[in-house]
Amino acid sequence: MTVELNHTIVPARDPEASAQFLAGILGLTVDPPLAHFTPVTLANRVSLDYDRLDDFEPHHYAFMLGEQEFDAALARIRHGGIAHYGDPACQEIGQIYHSKHFRGRRGTYFHDPDGHLMEILTPGDAGS
């Protein structure tokens, strides 16, 4: 068997609200609770298992989307009045980035309700 990531724990002050936030942006649904976790499962079957914690360091999570899915997610971000940025330092407000290393790759960053830095990006073409 090959090695695959199965799930990761995402700390959240309100797991249900944070899972609903991300699922809403990505056009996904929140899975039924699993023990005390609130999971969101991605297309590659990796789940983000939201778990209640009061004190934690924010993390970075990046999601690869097709072109149409990216446009739809970006529209939901903009429609929701969610600040998004063209850089991970969150200085380029309202921007998307265009990769210098992957022709056609676009992406943007935004924060979830718990301060995690979320990124959505498209694949683009390697080698440029």
Rank of each mutant, 00 (worst) to 15 (best):
R76I: 02
Y109D: 05
G27F: 09
G80L: 10
Q68T: 14
Y109M: 14
I93A: 13
A62D: 00
F110Q: 10
A72C: 03
E57D: 15
A35Y: 07
Y61W: 12
A12F: 08
L117M: 15
D71W: 12
A35L: 05
D14E: 15
E67W: 08
E69N: 09
V46W: 01
H101D: 13
V40D: 00
A72H: 06
E92N: 13
L26D: 04
R78C: 03
I25P: 04
I77Y: 08
H60R: 13
A19V: 03
L28S: 02
E67Y: 08
A89S: 11
A126E: 13
R52K: 13
P39H: 08
Q95D: 15
L42R: 01
E67K: 10
I96S: 12
T122N: 11
Y109N: 14
H116P: 03
G107P: 07
P32S: 09
P39E: 03
P33E: 09
L34A: 11
V40A: 01
D71H: 15
D49L: 06
D51K: 13
A12L: 06
T29A: 05
H111W: 13
R13H: 10
D112T: 03
S128G: 07
L22R: 03
Y50V: 05
S99E: 05
K100D: 12
H84A: 05
T122G: 08
Y50M: 01
G27R: 03
H111E: 15
E57N: 10
A73P: 04
A83N: 06
L121I: 03
G127K: 13
S18Y: 07
G115V: 07
D125I: 12
F63P: 00
I120T: 05
S18P: 01
V46K: 00
H60C: 06
F56L: 09
D54H: 10
G81D: 13
F37V: 04
T29N: 04
F63D: 03
F63W: 05
D31C: 00
G127N: 10
L22P: 03
T38M: 01
L74P: 08
I82Y: 14
G104D: 11
D51W: 14
F110A: 01
G81M: 09
P88C: 09
F37W: 11
D54P: 02
A23V: 07
E57Q: 15
K100N: 05
S18A: 10
D31L: 03
L22K: 02
D87P: 07
A83S: 11
V40E: 04
A12K: 09
G66K: 14
H101W: 14
R106K: 15
E67T: 14
D87L: 09
